[in-house]
Design a binder for these strands. Sequence first.
RNA 1: GCUCCGGUGGUGGAAUCGGUAGACACGAGGGACUUAAAAUCCCUUGGCCUCACGGCUGUGCGGGUUCAAGUCCCGCCCGGAGUACCA
Length: 944
Amino acid sequence: MSEYKFQEIEQRWQEEWQRTDAYKTSNGSKKPKYYVLDMFPYPSGAGLHVGHPLGYIASDIFSRYKRLRGFNVLHPMGFDAYGLPAEQYAIQTGQHPEKTTTVNIARYREQLGKIGLGYDWSRAVKTCDPDYYHWTQWAFIEMFNHYYDNRTDKALPIANLEKHLAQHGTEGLDAACTTELNLTAEQWNAMSVKEKSDTLMNYRLAYLADTKVNWCPALGTVLANDEVVNGLSERGGHPVEQRIMRQWCLRVSAYSQRLLDGLERIDWSDSIKDSQRNWIGRSEGAEMHFMAKDIDITIFTTRADTVFGVTFMVLAPESKYVSMLTTEEQHAEVEQYLEQVRHRTELERIADKKVTGVFTGSYATNPLTGKNIPIYVSNYVLSGYGTGAIMAVPAHDSRDYAFAKHFNLPIIPLIEGADVSEQSFDAKEGIMINSPMKTDAADGQDRLVLNGLSVKEAIAKTKEYITAKGIGRVKVNYRLRDAIFSRQRYWGEPFPVYYKQDEQGESYPVMLPEECLPLALPDVDKFLPTADGQPPLGNAKQWAWDEVNHKVVNNSLIDHKTVFPLELCTMPGFAGSSAYYLRYMDPHNDRELVSREADEYWQQVDLYLGGREHATGHLIYSRFWNKFLFDLGLVCKDEPFAKLINQGMIQGRTNYAYRIVGTNKYVSLGLKDQYETQPIRVNVNIVHNDILDIDAFRNWMPEFKDAEFILEDGNYVCGYAVEKMSKTFYNVVNPDDIVEHYGADTLRLYEMFLGPIEQSKPWDTNGIDGVHRFLKRLWSMYDNITDTEPNADELKSLHKLIKKVTQDIEGFSFNTSIPAFMICQNELTQAKCAKRAILEPLLVVLSPFAPHIAEELWHQLGHNTSVLDAQWPEWNEAYLVESKVKYPVSFNGKVRFTLEVAADTEAAEIERLALNDPQAQNWLAGKQVKKVIVVPKRIVNIVI
RNA sequence: GCUCCGGUGGUGGAAUCGGUAGACACGAGGGACUUAAAAUCCCUUGGCCUCACGGCUGUGCGGGUUCAAGUCCCGCCCGGAGUACCA
């Protein structure tokens, strides 16, 4: 019996596949296409751990399956090469991030290759490659040159807008914008270059604006909302504070509704669609106008029905109304409050739920009751949502309630039975009362009366009323904010932007001509910000744009006439990852992002695999970016990813040893309660099945050199806990080690066997031997192959397997295929079967999971073409069926039979077969059959 | 708080449309081979009762629908994930 030499087999086939370009995909093919994509990794210095390949293995299985099914499969891989760790490393060591990144990428490719993942590396992209970011910069320029037209619901050239403004001003314009403008054509035409530039910024899809940003002092850069978690930076966990800065932004919010609607048409998990819906945060409500003397304060509310319970108003500290409404007497107090708010970091704001606020001194008139109500400023109102001003209804909003209690403001309940003595009644249900209130002036005509209506009816009626009276209008609001696109970092895509000055010396941005792209990232001697606080690109000496000669020149030549300074910020991480899936379709095209032919051939990603942590980041930005390119007519699908699967995270399984306090003695898990112990994390790589390798432990670190042990049954048993996989917990398992020990095929099978792909689970090698044994047994089956015709049992076993595996792969539940292989193998071993007609198709269905062993055995069976190009076998239902009664069970006066019959057998036929079966008749002997119930799945219940 | 997902043996997890609950694997126990060990193979393995045949019970808890419920419905408990002054 020959030995299963997996190392030799795997190395040989990996080299062979590489030599023959086995995974190269062509764009022109008569076969139907299928595009499988993994979220490309950031190549970190730590290399891959066993958690990373989970999704890659799954997508690899799926691509191989699709290929065997006759599809032309695109399965590329690349690298999201810009990122903070390489830059932080550069700051510490002076090593150029490009160098670090190149080394890390080489390491990743080697590791991925060892797992036998079949990527077409000729299509690989990396985001830091100028040939790649050429198209990131290009897309940015296009966004700058477009605005969003709400009428046609698409992006249009900014030139159209300029023409409109020149002819009609803002009259008749319905475009996504930062603030609603009211301009006449004359006003527009009279503007200076700089003024026009500023005005257009209000509409451009990529625009420069002073915005409140998340500033992270430790990282020296701003962060997008999705990069801030609980007031700390996602990377590094540093505190983040609010600052007003001039930044490039993308008008993602213009696409809110389309991003929402698109979710209906794509096959993503409910949970991730839900996250996106939540993040976009559509809410239907009403805008209403409250007058404070001659100042019109517009508010947004979803509870128009509660307008009779408004007892005060609140403005966000950043609201433009604050300065307009603050009275002389209140001025000092308001200023002090604003100052206090300004100095708080995001984290402090989240942690501190204390009610704060200040009275402006002004009053507004409730447009429905005519009553005067005080206007406050408080940071519980956000400037970025709605209009930055609210009508406060303390009886029915918990935040307003807390504020009213604190400042002793009246609380008027508006819903029958609502007890508001202790807390507000926030539920949107009940019958309205006090609307209008008894104290309201009775003008007798056309008044809004809500009493007796349900909340829902009252909202509708109020909206109708305020619209008719011109007090307000129906309005939809979105929580989704525009993406801040500038980062004060070195290691990112440079903006293709330079700054000119007008006659007054005011600067405004100008895009580089598209034919001058890519604008390459310049060299710097230091990766830190400059002494005067400029971003790291401020250190570059060659960073000025010669407008005449179209080239980057030395900064000393800047004269603001023909040579201008270039933008010092770089783009954020999501810039490069937003359209990379398009580039794989046509990676070497130097004239466009993707050719029309390539785009029309590949269309969109059919299957996308990645972690769910990108739900509100990358997966929103990509959809936005793609929709924009779709509007421009450059891509043919308005959604980038037809189907999305989120693989779960593999957590670490940390092993613990228990040191007896104050000694260098360690007690086994089962005995530890007899001592006072202190748990110590042990390197998982010196523990097998929770049993510690004592010699390895002594050699692990000097402090354990003389360690003594109290054993149970001759072994030292470790405890365990599930934690994040991390170097500091000594629980990182490197896939290379597993590959060396068990082989790539075992690793692949085992990762799939661990559980459902979408579920997070700890890495636990305790079961890996079982999977490895399966492969060894399988290997030994191929020692004696005969050409004998298979019998019915063998065919049934094989076809059961084909059916199961086919359905599993289609349904993406690979974990249940592994048992199917084991069962089949078990059945065949019992049948002493080594028949070619059985084992050949078996190899084909196994090959996506364990490609190396399948390829080796395939060749041993005499094939001289790769198993990659075999044909996926179809199962034959006829082999699976025998008509016989199984499992007669009696209970509660019934006899139940399961019949194995063909799937399309009629109910009457099933009943006949059941009653005529000899085994069934034996059971029914001497009993009166009262009723026969035939239910789906060929189950027969006979009531006696 | 809100939204979503989940709760099945000692463990990871199976169970398609409501139809034999616990597949498969690990672990554990027993056995074969071996001087011995490793490797390999075989048997047992939810709980309770029984020499056995077999029976009872059992999918977080309490109800319900159904010939039939891990699965569907109602009400709880517990765990996980996401999100949060979003008016």
